[in-house]
Computed example of a mutant assay.
Amino acid sequence: MSSSLPPVSTQTPPSLPPAIAKPKKQPYPFYLGGVAATIAASITHPLDLTKVRLQASGDKRMVDSIKKTVRTAGFRGLFDGITGTWMRQMSYSLCRFWAYDESKKLLGANPQSPPWVLAAAGVMAGSIAGVVGNPGEVVMVRLQGDFAKPPEKRFNYKHCFDALFRMVREEGPSSLLRGVGPNVFRSILMNSSQLASYDFFKAELLKTKYFEDNIACHFTASFAAGTVATTVCSPADVLKSRIMNASGPGSSSTLGVIRASLAKEGPMFMFKGWVPAWTRLQPTTILIFLTLEQLKNAVDWKRGTL
């Protein structure tokens, strides 16, 4: 009796094509944060200038301070010290964004990490950037605050490099570290509040059904981050401006500035200039993160990964 079963094929079935592995996303250029911050700070420079002059001088109100600047120096006066702002952003801000990303990698942080992990990365970044960016910070504050002083007390720096060289020549290299303590403290507060809260708010918004990873989400997250950062950083910001803008011997003592300010103005001096600080930091924060996200999109587009 013959079998009705078909003959067994010995031919090997064709193999399926191997799955194409998705290429690992390359890190973004380290300088994107500095470029984004420089663009944002250039736009909001007049508000930052007004904030510094309110903190370092006897001006009482933001509008009065702006009018005084325009009256004494014209509209160009609203951009006094812009080169110091550029120097500060391309040192401090470049460093803080780079250090924040590296700190998150070191801590194994991701968009779903708890806030304290993101804040810890911000503390690490702020500690580094506060020291690296201190010379630029001193130069920026002095250039911005110069025209608020009587003519005989002005530094009369021509630009940021003139300020840097003259400070080293006339006051010694240690002048570049003037106010480094409050500046590092403020940098820690800023990065642990602004950068960490932006990541936190962005991640929380993306969990809802109302937001996608687009400009609306970036705007909302950065608005919340700017308000948090302004409130957290105000005391250290005031102290930093007053110490860096001082020029007399012994005038750079943090405790001395605190005692003198408390005796003269009371504890609320720590929040002097909060409104212009918020008015300046809010659009700056929004512009920084919107610009940074668009720069990242541009890099992705160029790489073909958008």
Rank of each mutant, 00 (worst) to 15 (best):
T279K: 00
S91E: 07
E293A: 04
W116N: 08
F223L: 11
T220Q: 10
S234Q: 14
A225W: 12
P150C: 03
K296L: 13
G250L: 00
Y28G: 03
E212N: 05
T279A: 13
A236M: 15
K51N: 15
L239P: 05
P23T: 14
Y92A: 07
M90S: 04
P249N: 12
H45G: 06
S193N: 11
A19L: 15
L94G: 15
P115W: 12
E170H: 12
M140S: 00
G130E: 02
L143A: 08
V184E: 05
K60C: 10
N156Q: 09
V63H: 01
C217N: 11
R142P: 13
Q144P: 08
T227Y: 11
F211Q: 06
P151K: 07
I66T: 11
I66R: 08
P173V: 01
F200T: 15
A120P: 02
P115R: 06
N110T: 04
S197M: 03
L239S: 10
F201L: 13
L164I: 00
T38H: 08
A56L: 09
A203M: 05
R154A: 09
S241I: 15
P18V: 12
K67V: 08
L143M: 14
K296C: 10
I39A: 12
Y28L: 08
F269P: 03
P46F: 10
D300Y: 01
T69H: 00
K51H: 07
